[in-house]
Computed example of a mutant assay.
Amino acid sequence: MAKAALALSTLLLISGCAQNSNNAASDTPDSVTSTGQSEPHHQMTDQWVGRWTGVEGLFLEISKDEPEGPGHYLLHMRYGLDADQIGTFEGQATAEGIRFKRGDGPQLLRAGDGKATGMKWLLEKEDCLVVKTGEGYCRD
């Protein structure tokens, strides 16, 4: 009987410890988790900070969003010729590039070359950022 009580006590103690460690992990704020995950990605995207040029006066200016922390950016861009196709958007580093949202939906800014932009005027460029075919920005 004493062995059974000891075994039961040990089992309860172990299950209680396991439950507490699971709760501690789930109590971690999402911002801490996402910051840790974006940490390696922002090293690549930090190199994109600055001005990028598109065609016909289109541009992209990337700056760090310091209050939000590493891996967060502000993207000021003219992405079309219409008057409402300009704005500043919040972005976050991912393994693929910088994710952001604007009026035409969620977007991904990724590294590419002139060919990836799909625009003949940028075809010879090697250092570009592409949102989608027909929208890209390059550096000389």
Score class of each variant (00 low, 15 high):
91 G>K: 01
54 G>K: 02
83 A>S: 15
131 V>A: 11
8 L>F: 12
118 G>T: 05
103 G>Q: 09
69 G>P: 06
2 A>G: 11
46 D>G: 05
72 H>G: 06
127 D>M: 02
37 Q>Y: 09
135 E>Y: 06
6 L>N: 08
86 I>L: 09
40 P>K: 04
45 T>L: 01
43 Q>V: 10
130 V>C: 09
129 L>K: 04
56 E>G: 12
67 P>W: 06
107 Q>Y: 04
98 I>H: 01
84 D>C: 05
14 I>G: 11
6 L>Y: 06
82 D>N: 14
110 R>F: 06
28 T>G: 04
50 G>A: 09
19 Q>D: 11
84 D>S: 08
47 Q>I: 02
122 L>V: 03
38 S>Q: 09
97 G>K: 00
133 T>C: 02
80 G>W: 03
66 E>L: 10
25 A>W: 10
38 S>K: 08
115 K>S: 09
113 D>C: 02
93 A>D: 06
38 S>P: 01
125 K>S: 10
5 A>Y: 03
109 L>F: 06
62 I>R: 00
95 A>E: 13
73 Y>R: 02
118 G>A: 02
86 I>G: 01
27 D>P: 01
6 L>F: 08
77 M>R: 03
35 T>G: 14
41 H>N: 12
81 L>S: 15
110 R>P: 02
136 G>A: 05
74 L>S: 07
87 G>H: 07
140 D>I: 00
34 S>H: 06
108 L>Q: 09
79 Y>P: 01
57 G>W: 03
125 K>D: 10
5 A>M: 10
34 S>N: 10
43 Q>S: 11
19 Q>G: 10
70 P>A: 12
73 Y>M: 05
67 P>E: 08
33 T>M: 12
41 H>Y: 15
85 Q>V: 05
20 N>P: 00
2 A>W: 02
68 E>G: 11
102 R>T: 03
116 A>E: 08
86 I>Q: 08
86 I>K: 01
76 H>A: 14
93 A>M: 04
57 G>L: 08
110 R>D: 03
27 D>I: 02
79 Y>E: 00
35 T>V: 00
43 Q>M: 07
22 N>E: 14
38 S>M: 07
8 L>A: 15
22 N>M: 14
24 A>L: 14
95 A>I: 08
76 H>V: 00
41 H>M: 04
17 C>M: 12
21 S>Y: 11
82 D>S: 14
46 D>A: 11
105 G>H: 08
53 T>C: 09
123 L>C: 00
71 G>M: 01
42 H>N: 13
119 M>Q: 15
20 N>V: 09
55 V>M: 07
65 D>C: 02
42 H>S: 12
102 R>H: 15
126 E>D: 13
92 Q>F: 04
6 L>M: 10
104 D>K: 09
10 T>H: 14
46 D>L: 03
89 F>S: 01
61 E>L: 14
24 A>V: 09
64 K>R: 14
36 G>N: 12
53 T>P: 05
123 L>H: 13
94 T>C: 00
78 R>Q: 13
22 N>I: 12
62 I>Y: 00
